[in-house]
Nucleic acid binder design. Structure first.
Length: 577
DNA sequence: CGGCATACG
DNA sequence: CGTAT
DNA sequence: GCCG
């Protein structure tokens, strides 16, 4: 019942000079330095909103005049933040009786409180009108006086929130002439997108033909053009010619494009049987460029050929199969009772209908085999609309909270960069309240995946990992990251690739940055860290090259700060074609 | 002329 | 060799 | 294929 009164004002913060405008009216003083516990209902929040809110709470968890902390359970919360506005919807996350005892506010309350530098009255931010009065009464700011004082600067929080379209201003020191993609603004679609798409064909061909270095050069050139802010014309050629990563070869490509509206080699490649076949084969999970070339060399041109190839080889031709199997991943993980691999003929039957628990053993989650990959292709090659990404995310968050309440999750990958259609769903899951070294982190991945499998939501497990730090100094954090690459399906839906990345608290923000992409953006982040800052950046974190010191960012912006980089919003990290 | 991101199964 | 960004 |  009693709303927690914050009584902390003895801040070490130097920026604390400003007297608090609004004193705790009823400072019962009994509460010693209690931080304001915030529970965030993730439902109906976009990945960016969740990330922003988390950043906000996290950033203001120490050393600020406002100090928040995340709480795993709504029961312990001093305030509940949600974008849900309907009772029914909220009841799926919070018991109604409990809800009546708490202030239930919109994310704007948090944002505006932070910009105002004080806890604002809740009245204007009640998430459910039905609970307006309770919210006002339980508000952690002064006691009541609902909306009167809210004349402050409430609206239009300066802080970023909302959908990816309403990003915060990109920082001023972005420079489209930089040789690092992480210093430039790369929109999803650029003004010279058609040229980019032509170069991307050549790039892809180089990759399929195992010319990685040439492919890399095209990646760099494409990245430069993606962030070049003007439409390319003859009179801009000089300028473009002086850009990093644009050399003689690229310039000649561009000139040809300006002259003819296309690039001949790109056309030729795109029309070639070989390119089309290789491209198609690599759509199969587990088939990369090398295997694709092998299949082509073996005479395959279409999926039917591949189907026949594997089908035949599985039934009858053991020898021929051995060759290709080398290129297809298959290893058993004991942890999770993976189904036996394709080498085990007996497992071939259970492809399509997974969740049939065997009587005596724990159910085994089917893993990837060439046969499975062929069966999954029809589903997995369909792209995923943003709405469904959110739906999948909601389900995962729901199940996650059943397995371990209080986890924080955010959608990363292409979705976060603003793509309207995604190839898969990438979710970074944090454990804000688990101790870094605690065992509670470990195994969360398998427990969640098992649960999803039992409920028929996960049909296959392509990959599962714990994390092993390469560095001795990180021995204590050897389980800082776990990955589960799954095939996920909503009831009656299309099967989708869903990647779950579990990050220990100290690795959370680097994991978010690392998994938001794009690929070229990430490579350049690492190059920048190494070449310009003597830092090492990987998904587990940032380390100082000299002494191996692990730097722990407290927000996504902090990652950029620590790297000495200006902020690049996720939607401007689309350095790839 | 060496290097090009980084790690894991 | 494959996977991920 | 381009950079330092």
């Amino acid at each position: 019942m009693s709303p927690r009164k914050r009584s902390r004002s003895s801040s070490i913060s130097s920026s604390d000079s400003q007297p608090r405008k609004r004193q705790r009216s009823s400072s019962d003083g009994s509460e010693p330095d209690k931080r304001l516990k915030v529970y965030i209902v993730q439902a109906k929040l976009s990945a960016d909103e969740v990330a922003s809110l988390y950043a906000l709470v996290d950033h203001h968890s120490v050393n600020e005049s406002l100090d928040f902390e995340l709480t795993p359970s709504p029961r312990d919360a001093d305030v509940i933040v949600t974008a849900v506005h309907m009772r029914k919807r909220l009841e799926r996350h919070i018991d109604w009786a409990l809800a009546k005892e708490k202030p239930i506010v919109t994310p704007d309350w948090l944002f505006n409180s932070v910009s105002a530098g004080e806890l604002l009255p809740c009245g204007k931010f009640a998430a459910l009108s039905e609970l307006h009065d309770e919210t006002v009464h339980n508000c952690p700011d002064g006691d009541d006086d609902s909306d009167t004082a809210a004349s402050s600067p409430p609206t239009d929080s300066l802080l970023h929130l909302r959908s990816p379209s309403q990003e915060p201003a990109a920082s001023a020191d972005l420079d489209w002439k930089s040789r690092y993609a992480c210093c430039r603004a790369s929109p999803l679609v650029c003004v010279n997108q058609h040229l980019v798409s032509r170069l991307a064909i050549i790039r892809r061909s180089r990759e399929l033909e195992d010319d990685k270095i040439s492919a890399l050069s095209y990646d760099h050139a494409i990245g430069m053009i993606k962030s070049y802010p003007y439409e390319l014309t003859e009179d801009r050629l000089n300028e473009v010619n002086s850009l990093p990563h644009i050399g003689p070869k690229m310039i000649s490509r561009i000139e040809e494009y300006l002259d003819n509206g296309d690039i001949e080699e790109a056309e030729t490649i795109a029309n070639s049987q070989r390119y089309q076949s290789l491209e198609a084969f690599t759509d199969l999970y587990g088939v990369g460029a090398t295997t694709a070339r092998k299949l082509y060399a073996a005479g395959c041109r279409t999926f039917e050929d591949v189907e026949r190839y594997y089908g035949v080889s599985y039934e009858d031709e053991a020898e021929e199969e051995a060759d290709l199997d080398d290129g297809l991943k298959t290893e058993e993980t004991d942890d999770l009772h993976l189904a036996s691999q394709h080498n085990d003929r007996a497992s071939q039957h259970n492809d399509r209908k997974p969740p049939r628990p065997l009587r005596f053993a724990k159910p085994k989650i089917p893993s990837i085999t060439p046969r499975v990959a062929l069966d999954l292709r029809d589903d997995l090659d369909q792209r995923i609309p943003r709405e469904e990404v959110q739906e999948i995310f909601a389900v995962i968050v729901r199940e996650l909270n059943a397995v371990r309440p209080g986890c924080v999750a955010t959608i990363v990958g292409g979705y976060r960069r603003g793509k309207s259609l995604s190839g898969d769903v990438d979710i970074v899951i944090g454990h804000p309240n688990l101790s870094p070294t605690g065992k509670q982190v470990k195994g969360l991945s398998s427990r969640l995946v098992e649960r999803l499998y039992e409920r028929g939501l996960v049909t296959h497990l392509m990959y599962l990992s714990g994390f092993h730090a390469p560095d001795v100094t990180r021995a204590a954090h050897w389980d800082a990251l776990e990955k589960a690459l799954t095939v996920f399906v909503l009831p009656g839906g299309v099967r989708r690739r869903v990647d779950l990345i579990f990050a220990a608290p100290e690795a959370y923000w680097t994991a978010v940055v690392g998994w938001t992409g794009s690929k070229t953006f990430e490579r350049d982040l690492r190059r920048w860290a190494a070449e310009q800052k003597e830092l090492k950046f990987d998904s587990t974190g940032l380390t100082r090259r000299s002494n191996g010191e692990l730097l722990v960012p407290t927000s996504e912006e902090d990652v950029f700060r620590l790297l000495g980089l200006g902020w690049v919003p996720p939607t401007l990290r689309n350095a790839d074609a």
